[in-house]
């Protein structure tokens, strides 16, 4: 098992990546941030990430499409959806399509860290890897 958790974060609002990258790096994740979901898809095709954190409402490629793409490429990767437009229907759609979790914005970086820790544990990372 690797020492570091490979995380890809995609959100078309730069502030989200800027805020979350240091919070996740601090707990032992290697984080790659993308504002353009199409660029994120290219990177996903090149590399298998452990965890992908994606916004849902994005132009060109939305988070649900990204989730479907990831699961076509890899059964390993856990996908965490973040959205400012959470509804019962959207949560159900994301979970039905295999999302690991869905978090409504705004949230604290510690909220995401908790979910990342759960996803890492589900992947078999030791608890000390995410601390």
């Amino acid at each position: 098992m690797k020492d570091k958790i490979e995380v890809l974060l995609v959100d078309d609002e730069a502030i989200v990546g800027n805020r979350l990258k240091p919070a996740l790096t601090k707990i032992g994740c290697n984080v790659e941030v993308f504002e353009d979901p199409k660029e994120a898809l290219k990177r996903i095709d090149e590399k298998e990430f452990d965890i992908i954190v994606t916004d849902i409402m994005m132009e060109d490629v939305n988070g649900i499409q990204l989730l479907e793409h990831v699961h076509r490429e890899s059964e390993w990767t856990k996908v965490i959806m973040i959205t400012g437009f959470a509804t019962e229907a959207l949560a159900r759609e994301a979970m039905a399509k295999g999302a690991f979790d869905i978090i409504a914005k705004p949230f604290r970086p510690s909220d995401l860290r908790e979910v990342i820790a759960k996803a890492a544990e589900a992947l078999g990372f030791e608890k000390k890897t995410v601390a």
Binding site: A94, M95, D101
Partner: peptide, 13 residues
């Protein structure tokens, strides 16, 4: 038992 009814951070909140 369907995945869509699994608890998640949003629904638990």
């Amino acid at each position: 038992g369907h995945k869509k009814f699994q608890p998640n951070t949003y629904s638990i909140n």
